[in-house]
Design a protein around this nucleic acid. Structure first.
Lengths: 147, 147
DNA sequence: GGCGCCGGTCGAGATCGTCGAGCATTGGAA
DNA sequence: TTCCAATGCTCGACGATCTCGACCGGCGCC
């Protein structure tokens, strides 16, 4: 599915997505045009879905990070889902199997804001909140081998 | 902490981190050199921690995505943490307060692989696994207002 | 008012990306 | 075996982009 060169390109891009085509090409042992081609193909095939910036929440005043498990009360599923989507402090949310319905990640400035947001959610669901103490694995790519 | 221009730049970059400086500058109403300056300053201040590529796991054969809560058995905390870090299919892991010690995201090709990986973890901890059915909120930036 | 700092623009030279042309390899069909 | 088409690469040149130095203007502070 991916060959060695594709994997190499993805690795390089995951480390720095704003690297120049030329440098990317050099590191991969290709010419720029073929590197550009491969990138285009990876996007066309839907392997690469985009390029984005990662920020340090703490540097923006988000001192607290929490993982919230949410179990909406009967009939409230869609309302709760929309509340989460409409609350921009939720930066990620998955709908999952099991007792909980949603598992979401929340960034807040302080305890007060955490409390405010959770109160609003808790009107329509049971929640279980864990404060993030550290992140032993920062977001990374899965193994790309023979995809 | 951030002014309107910084926010605009971050927004644009979060949508497409490989956009050219020139285009970035135009969209923000600045010249390229000052745009480059601002980017550099955002990195220096630690607001921007990097630029990365986002991939579609399904396009790479990762058909299943799971959220695993992990509670290591007494004395096993560091061993379990290392196991998670050393298992590349764990693409994200937070250490949290509460009954669970870790909450991790796992990408696997099929149930068999899920089973294999969880078995290995479960030798040294209690685990609770939720399969991701959908993602109502895809990873996004938190509000940048007057941050 | 005068000064220095911060953040901006401008223009030129260097660097980079893109396009067309052409080449090598591969696989299938005659 | 030979031909042919498709694929994926390189090369070179042109146009676009980035970067660097020089300079400008507003603002706060003596």
């Amino acid at each position: 599915m991916l060959d060695d060169l594709d994997r190499r390109l993805l690795d390089l891009l995951s480390a720095n997505a704003r690297i120049s085509l030329k440098e990317l090409a050099q590191e991969a042992g290709l010419s720029s045009p073929s590197t550009a081609d491969r990138l285009r193909r990876l996007e066309d095939r839907g392997v690469i879905t985009g390029f984005t910036v990662s920020i340090n929440p703490a540097a923006l005043g988000y001192a607290l990070q929490a993982v919230v498990r949410v179990r909406p009360m009967p009939g409230m599923l869609h309302i709760v889902e929309k509340m989460i989507q409409d609350t921009p402090e939720f930066v990620e949310c998955d709908k999952v199997t099991g007792d909980d319905c949603f598992i979401a990640k929340l960034l807040v400035r302080d305890m007060e804001q955490l409390d405010t947001i959770l109160d609003r959610i808790a009107e329509k669901s049971q929640t279980n909140t864990s404060i993030v103490k550290s992140s032993p694995v920062k977001r990374r790519l899965p193994p790309l081998a023979s995809g």
